[in-house]
Each structure stands twice: as C-alpha cells, then as structure tokens.
Write a protein that binds this DNA or RNA. Structure first.
Lengths: 262, 262
DNA sequence: ACGCTGATGCGTACACCGTTCGCAACCCAT
DNA sequence: ATGGGTTGCGAACGGTGTACGCATCAGCGT
C-alpha cells in the first residue's frame, strides 16, 4: 500500500493504454495554431511552453519534438499570420490604380497587426529577416504591385510604406494591449487616463491644446461620452498618414505631376 | 572550525564595518544609468535585475528600494534616452524651414534609436504612453514646430512622422542587433546570408531582381567587397522615405502648392 | 550621551521560465 | 517475433522577477 505516489509510476498494464486514439497527437501545425490562439487571447508574455503544452494535453517538453525552440515557434507563428494579409494582384488595376491597391494592402497589414497585437512586438524585436514562405509571398506580391506601377526604385518605395504601416500599427497594437489589460472599454480607459495626461502636459504649452481637444471630445471628466468614437479616430489617423505617404511616393513616379491635393 | 559557511554568517565585529564609505550607494539615477549601459552593450534580454545589481556591487533585491519593478526601470530608461533627442527650436527657422527642422528631428530620433537598439523593442511593446518628462518635452518641441509651420492638424502630421521614423528605426535596430549578435561586420553578415535569402526568393519572381541587385553590390558570393557600404545604404533608404513623407505632409499645408519634386 | 525611528541593504525563498537528458511506450517494416 | 526509429514525458538545471523580514545605519529629539 505504500507504493502509490501522486502520478501513476506503476508501469503496469493499465497505464500503457491511453496513448493512442486520443487525438491525432501533436504536430507542428497544431502547436503553432494553438500558440496563436493563446497569443491573441492573453498577450505575448502569457505564452509559455508549459501552458501551451497543457492546452494541448501534452507534457511540457513534448513540444520540442516538433519545434526546436520557443523563438522558432514565434517565427512560425509570425509567418502563419502573414498568410492572413491580402495584397491585391498587380494586374487587377492596370498600372493606374496602384494607389488604391497599395492602400488596400496597407489596410490589410494594419488589420492583421491589430488582430494579433503581439505581431508588432515580435517584429520589433526580430525584424523581418524571417524568410518564411508567407512573408516571402507577401513581399513578392507587394513588389509586383510597385514594379507594375512603374516605380524606378520599387524596394525603396515598399520599405517606406511598410515602415509607416509598421510604425503606426505597432503603436496602435501597444495601445490596444494596454486597453485589453485594463479590462475597460477604449473610451473608458481614455477618460480615466485623461487627468494624468493633462497634468503631465500642463507644463508644455504646445501640448495642452492637443490634449484639450480630445478631453473635450471625451466629454466631462471621467464620463465616457456617447458620441466619442476612438476606433473611428484611429482609423482616420491611419488613413491621414497613409494618404500623405502615398502622395509623397506618387511624386517619385516618373510620369508624375503633382497628385490631387483634395 | 565547523562554523564557517561560504558567506560570513557570523555577526561579529568584522562583518559590520564595510557598509559605509564605499560609494555614494545606490540611487535611482545610478541604477538607470548602469541599466542603459548594459542594455546598449548586451541587448535587452541580457538585462536582469541580478546582473544589474552585481554591476553596482549590490545585492539583487536592493534595487527594489529605488525602483518599483523592472518595467518601471525600463520606463525610466526609455525616458532618459528620450532626453538625447534633439528637436530644433520652432522659431529658429521662421515658418518656412519647418521641413529641414523636422528632418533634423527625425534624424536625431533615428540616431538615438540606433544608438540604443533596445528602445524600439520597448516602445513596440509598451507604446508611447509613458508620460516621462523627457518624452513630454520631446513631444512638446515637435508640436511647437508643426504648429508654427501652420499645419491645420498638427497632431496628425506629427503622428504620421513618428510612425514612419519609428517603423524604419525599429527595423534597422532589429537588424543591427542581429549583426551585433553575429559578431561579424554588417557587410560580412549580408554576404553570408545572401545565399539563403536568394534561395528563399527564388520562387518569387518579383523578388529575385531586388535581391540580385544587392547580391551584385556585395560582390562575388561570400566575399565582403570593398566598395560595399551598408551604412550609407541605410542612410539613403531612411532619407528617401523621410523626404517622401515630408512631401506628402507639405501638401497638407494650407498655402501648399506642389512641393519641389527634385 | 542615549535611544528611537525611518531609510537602506540584502539573504532567503517562491513560483515560474526555457531547455536537456534519458527512459518508456509506441508504430511499422522486416 | 524482433528490432529500429519516432514520439511523449518526468525530472532536473540554471536562470528569472519579486515578496518578506531581518540587520544595519544616519540623523535626530531628548
């Protein structure tokens, strides 16, 4: 009777059954998929190999049969997510509509980055030296678009575009992560943080104005007003910069006259 | 003779001396300063509270007397580094030269971000919701510049600018971190990575061209050629996008005709 | 001169992390 | 039946951030 510990260390007949017929078992695909789910749900720092394994009804170290390291797992997750990004085909808009196509690709990038707020963190730390198939395909389709558009230095234009999109998206993603962690609504959190922000800005004359605007938009102190729409404001902010960027790039096209200002 | 372990657990007269007259002791300032040194030298993941304490000849947990948490320490480090960024005063260039002033500010931001490659990682994870005095001052000076320039929506323009600069800088910083970790020169690492990159791009017709260019610039496979200048190329890439961005923003100025294309 | 009080340093400990190693169980071809 | 390759995993190692409580000390009111 003294031979039972907490697990079943007895290698008897009864313990050696349930290995099979459970699930298809582990696989790199399943691991990456579940990792993305966890990352989306609880953020980048909530993902640990142990917790991930537990979710898959597996032992912690079993994952290492299918994934060399946690960094590699993140690499796979990043590439997987890049598969969600849409770039309109280069020939859909014959040479003139590169602008709307580029805008669509940028919006898709942003949407993906906001759907997976950990993406920006990972890319910010590791850069885009990943070479995964989906990332390569994404780059390739973007290159097709800018080449077809007639840019003399397509890579320059592309790098410029994604620098802007990445910068804006990562700022937004960080903010959304903060919002998610706070448990409040976006408008609510803004309202709650407003006093501190205004006080911090008080000593800087050129900032008070800017803060005062949104403070007014929020409504009275602390009350998350009805008509206040942070999502729409972020959308507008994104397209403002995007359009500016595209205007600037359009000037680099050989046949370019000045772009329409309105 | 059985009473000596590894440390000196004997509370005798001899052990209670050397506390004083050592250094000025710990201080938040000294901690932050040393943390930045370590971050610059060994990257973000090499910084641990224990190692940092060891550098300061202090016990690991002593740091917590001056810093609430590691996150707060990073916050302080970020703000400290923001103090290095230069923004030309708004009135130095009377209203017309906002462009060169903005470019100078952008370059200063980039230079700082490349001097402290961990900055982008931290900002990418936490956003710029920091409210530290140096960051506020930086924002304020930038706001002054764009307000003076006459932008109808200065915050929009500013957000656009720093989105681009952050995106480009963080990509560069990540790359430089990779270079530093590899122990090779930048050109050497490019040369070594070229074959893999080209192979990965082989299946994507629009990328082969782009890679072929730099492969040619590098010279023969594997040899880090003489005239190859990665630093200069990065500089050029940065100003290409920056100028495009500023062109696009210039169009948003009320009095704007089309900006000079050359 | 004394004792008190608050600030400061730090040893210990806890819970968790990524990863290595070696063993047990299994699948499948022989 | 057997043997080899693949897969899962328990235990363990060295590391992490941080809470707790004790020791020491500086400065002060008496």
């Amino acid at each position: 009777m003294a031979a039972d510990k907490k697990p079943q260390p007895i290698p008897s007949v009864w313990t050696r059954r349930p290995r099979t017929a459970e699930q298809p078992g582990l696989s790199q695909e399943a691991i990456v998929r579940e990792a993305i789910v966890m990352l989306d749900a609880d953020g980048i720092e909530a993902l640990s190999m142990r917790k991930l394994a537990a979710r898959l009804n597996a032992g912690a170290t079993s994952l290492y049969r299918h994934v060399a390291t946690k960094d590699e797992l993140m690499e796979l997750a990043v590439d997987e997510v890049f598969g969600e990004m849409v770039v309109p085909p280069a020939d859909s808009a014959d040479s003139a509509d590169w602008r709307t196509a580029a805008a669509r690709a940028a919006a898709s990038f942003r949407a993906t980055a906001l759907r997976h707020p950990w993406l920006s963190s990972v890319l910010g730390q590791a850069g885009l030296a990943y070479l995964g198939p989906n990332l390569m395909s994404f780059s390739n389709r973007l290159a097709a678009l800018f080449i077809k558009a007639g840019f003399p230095e397509p890579t320059r234009a592309i790098d410029t575009l994604i620098a802007y999109v990445m910068g804006m998206s990562s700022a937004e993603a960080a903010w959304l992560t903060t919002v998610a962690r706070s448990g409040e609504t976006e408008a609510g959190l803004i309202a709650r943080l407003m006093p501190d922000a205004q006080q911090a800005a008080a000593a800087h004359d050129n900032l008070t104005e800017a803060y005062a605007e949104t403070a007014e938009a929020v409504g009275a102190v602390g009350a998350a007003a009805e008509g206040f729409d942070p999502v729409g404001m972020r959308d507008e902010k994104f397209v403002y910069g995007l359009e500016a960027m595209l205007d600037g790039l359009a000037l680099r096209l050989p046949a370019a006259g000045p772009p329409p200002v309105e």
